[in-house]
Design a protein around this nucleic acid. Structure first.
Lengths: 158, 158
DNA sequence: GTGATATAGATGCCACGGCATATACTGTAG
DNA sequence: CTACAGTATATGCCGTGGCATCTATATCAC
């Protein structure tokens, strides 16, 4: 085995290609399962989950978290609000923005969806990677994510 | 250090969340650079690159490779064809399908875009991960991708 | 306070993907 | 040859995201 500093660097292009393909297929597979059981897709589950963990956050906070545009986030919240899962509450500290919270129905939905999500993602990942490799990839992706967020890489305009 | 079989399994939910966030930001950052220098986005670069490596492949082959729908793939090829980078040639063995090839302009475009893409993705990945971790994540994602493809996970309908 | 600038987010237009369907062709059974 | 099931992909409708823009509000300089 090569020591830490002597391994040849892997081709970042291949790493990126595999990253995108894994993400696409996992996302598609999770969408399928969440849609058939709960009528939502993964991006909606992720919004609901973030609102459960960060009640009172604003549209801009969600947009920054998911690295998507503010407009898209606002529209996504519109849809969740129409379903009765999210409410916009007036922000006493700044009347330009709203504080986003889950309704009781929203809490029930995210809790139910989480069971489905957890079961399926566990099956997909653990079916393909042993613990050592899963731990290695989890650590590396967490580092990469932190670096990208620190440097504000890949934030859309709007 | 724990031995191979004794490490506790990382939470696949966190692994997935980090995977998606990394993919989103890397994709956005690469889109930005490719758009400003060449007027294309990453998905188009990936189509062109696959066609360069697999001349004469069909629409369905591209769709399977990228785990996207056949319709979307057909429309993506329409756009590349309108730009004059791809040509549909009649398939002598099956007149329902076409053989897709790059034009000379397409070859020039993909070669130029590849320099930009390689430079940027290298900077993004190597700026955040040391060789050991990059190699570990590359190996694990390649395995995961192979498993997902083998089991036909996450293929859209159309 | 008043005006200039900045910020939060809602909205409109456009591009793109999913899915259902339509069209054209292939292969097979008789 | 004919009918029919299967396949390849092109197309239409719809939902969603990006980006530009608009409005309301906040903040700052004076």
């Amino acid at each position: 085995m090569a020591s830490i500093s002597r391994g040849s660097a892997p081709d970042p292009r291949l790493l990126f290609a595999d990253l995108v393909r894994c993400e696409t297929r996992l996302y598609n597979a999770l969408n399928e399962r969440l849609r058939e059981r709960h009528g939502i897709v993964t991006s909606q589950y992720e919004f609901l989950r973030h609102l459960r963990e960060h009640p009172g956050c604003r549209v801009a906070d969600l947009a920054a978290e998911f690295a998507i545009g503010i407009g898209a986030t606002s529209k996504g919240i519109d849809r969740l609000e129409r379903h009765g899962w999210v409410a916009r509450q007036p922000n006493p500290a700044d009347r330009r923005s709203s504080l986003l919270v889950l309704t009781d129905d929203g809490v029930r939905m995210v809790d139910a969806a989480e069971r489905t999500f957890t079961e399926r993602v566990t099956e997909l990942i653990e079916g393909a990677l042993d613990r050592t490799r899963a731990a290695a990839v989890a650590e590396a992706l967490a580092l990469l994510r932190t670096a990208l967020e620190r440097d504000q890489i890949g934030m859309p305009t709007g």
